[in-house]
Design a binder for these strands. Sequence first.
DNA 1: CGTCACTTTGAAAGCTTTCAATAGGAGTGG
DNA 2: CCACTCCTATTGAAAGCTTTCAAAGTGACG
Lengths: 241, 241
Amino acid sequence: MSALGYLTSIGSSGAPVAHGGEGAGMSVLPLEGASCRRLDADDVVFLEGDEAERVHEIVQGVVRLCRLLPDGRRAVLGFRHPGDLLGLCSGGRHDCTAEAVTPVVLRSCRLSSLAALAEASAETRRRLSSLVWREIDATRTNLLVLGRMSALERVASFLVALSRQHGHATRLHLPMSRTDIADHLGLTIETVSRTLTQMRRRGLIALPSPHLAILLCPDALRDLAAADEPDDAAPRRAWAA
Amino acid sequence: MSALGYLTSIGSSGAPVAHGGEGAGMSVLPLEGASCRRLDADDVVFLEGDEAERVHEIVQGVVRLCRLLPDGRRAVLGFRHPGDLLGLCSGGRHDCTAEAVTPVVLRSCRLSSLAALAEASAETRRRLSSLVWREIDATRTNLLVLGRMSALERVASFLVALSRQHGHATRLHLPMSRTDIADHLGLTIETVSRTLTQMRRRGLIALPSPHLAILLCPDALRDLAAADEPDDAAPRRAWAA
DNA sequence: CGTCACTTTGAAAGCTTTCAATAGGAGTGG
DNA sequence: CCACTCCTATTGAAAGCTTTCAAAGTGACG
């Protein structure tokens, strides 16, 4: 649109590919000379404080970003899916830890390579900028969720967000543990569990197994989760850092 | 440092100018052809959803960024001070509302002008990138605060962060209302007030007036606020969007 | 000096957490 | 193939912290 280059671009990204399927769309960023890496569940991609040297694209699996307090309390900043980028940052060090939630396949390249690409291509800058601003937007949404919503609303938000990320699917696979969800929503695992049960009893969702949720009343859930952006917004491609 | 250009730069900004003083340092961004604007307390700089057309630099005063739920519940994402930028964003629309907390003086230019400047200058891109990543870092810190800290710790975090922004001052002017603080910390005004009183009774702070706090035991407060980055970090210049 | 807005304080209620115990499933070994 | 163990999720009951509802205190302003 405007000449703002990487500052203004937003709707620039490719087709609104829903992940969940693994090798779904083409890479948001051409990671030339990329190497692949395979991780088991709970393996660390990088640690908060680590020198940021590589950027990763998730090919398969789910990754969580988190931060810790000195006493061990944890915040899961978000979950990243296939197609998302991990490890982007401006400083020399990561400001959060990234860990595999499931077995993960990563394709990565040096941060400096991506930097060079960005330096040479306004289009790449535009895409990266778009990614970063979506991250800010999403994080701000989470701030509203944690600061002002009840447990029921928080869980609804989580489910609705996950659903939207997967093309508004109503059948949701929840690869992360209750602990991960709790740390993401600022609740305890017991409260997450109880809330899910409550939703089930109300007929809002079905829970065939702890890691599979089926949204029976997406609209009702959406109302509970009203924190998120209006639904007419273009599907936002998550990403990472 | 590396060739990552606007992707990696971080410590690039000028002297760690503490704001609070008004025209303290030179502008982070050269806003050529900038126009000035004067606002009263509670005036709106821009609204969430507005077309993003201008970027503002705060010359004087304090601004709050906030988001609302449909039913009126509010989250104050943060407070911005002289020297900070307002209105930066990648999309066509603002993702939050900016309002004056105190009377404010703004210097602003068209977003497209800044865009052009960025497109032409790698150094500008670097600075902007640094700003954006600091915003992400700060917002993530807030997520940990809201998700995992008690009322006492949240208020301590707030005071410590404010103190650090002002060059580790122990005499803090709190221009914002208890409501603003509460919405920023995910608490009620009563809890904020009670917590402040509790800190006063414990001898952690003094409160000569509702809008003036004096940190009597900065170290104890810092311990309570352990969520924030270690104190040896370079003073981070806040900013905005 | 009265009004208004904001802050502080008090008391009860409520929601989430904490502590504990009971299910459920996957993997291992007999 | 079944028993046993371990880990995670669910459920229950009591405790706790924050909120809600109310009222009193404080300061600015006309």
